[in-house]
Design a protein around this nucleic acid. Sequence first.
DNA 1: CGTTACCCCTGGAGGC
DNA 2: TGCCTCCAGGGGTAAC
Length: 275
Amino acid sequence: MPELPEVEVSRQGLMPFLVGQRIVKAIFRTPKLRHELPASLVSRLAGLRIDAISRRGKYLLFDCESTQGGGWLILHLGMSGSVRLVKPDMPLQKHDHVDLVFAHTTLRFRDPRRFGTLLWHEGEGVGQHPLLAVLGIEPLSPAFDGDWLFAQTRRRSAPIKPLLMDSHLVVGIGNIYAAESLFRAGISPLRAANRISRERYRILVPAIRTTLENSIAAGGSSVRDYVHSDGGAGCFQLSCAVYDRLGQPCPTCAQPVCSLRQAGRSTFYCPRCQR
DNA sequence: CGTTACCCCTGGAGGC
DNA sequence: TGCCTCCAGGGGTAAC
């Protein structure tokens, strides 16, 4: 589920309830997600106040009094992770790995596949953390425009689709939104990045931005339900034009949607609308 | 350096 | 029903 929009929707949903609240207690039930959970973190977190929640790519960043002797809690949802605000007596489900207990609510992190991770950065400057320092540009930032992406891809002969998913270049675009953005821009996922014109990059980048922003807006309308949910109601998701729609009619030309594998990931596209 | 294959892990879907 | 294979929204690493 989590690409940039889902992480951003989670952030916006958590913020009103957690900012200003102190962590009463942290509970780790699983010793290892993607990374080892340091046992000392349980005691380190107790008593710290959440001053802000920010996002870098698909990472959620909890500012735990970082400017006053605290640090940053870094959370990545991986492929199957989710966070919810629950009542403290909510029965545990399988793969509920972490609770952050606050006075009036509990943040519960669930991740069946355990590709997600929870890390701690002591003090300020969380951007210097090794996992964050290597990240590329934010796709919703003004600096991300067609000219920038054109310049970055002059020596890249790989197909554009896996490049859009490379977080060292641009963060937050996963398999769904890469496919949807390319459809919106009318660009084939197979086209070599250095064989796309500047003009077409000036179409592609706004297409990416629109795709992400529309998804955030759609999720944003049900944020409160999402973070308060007992697990039933998920985040409303915009219906896709091509992703996971093999053989179904293209919304533009009714030609059947095609599928293939690129760099180990399935890709969906309209062979008529995307060149 | 850029690109791709493989791996981490569980669970659901579909074939037999 | 069970067993098998394949697939899944991410990303780091190693090998070409």
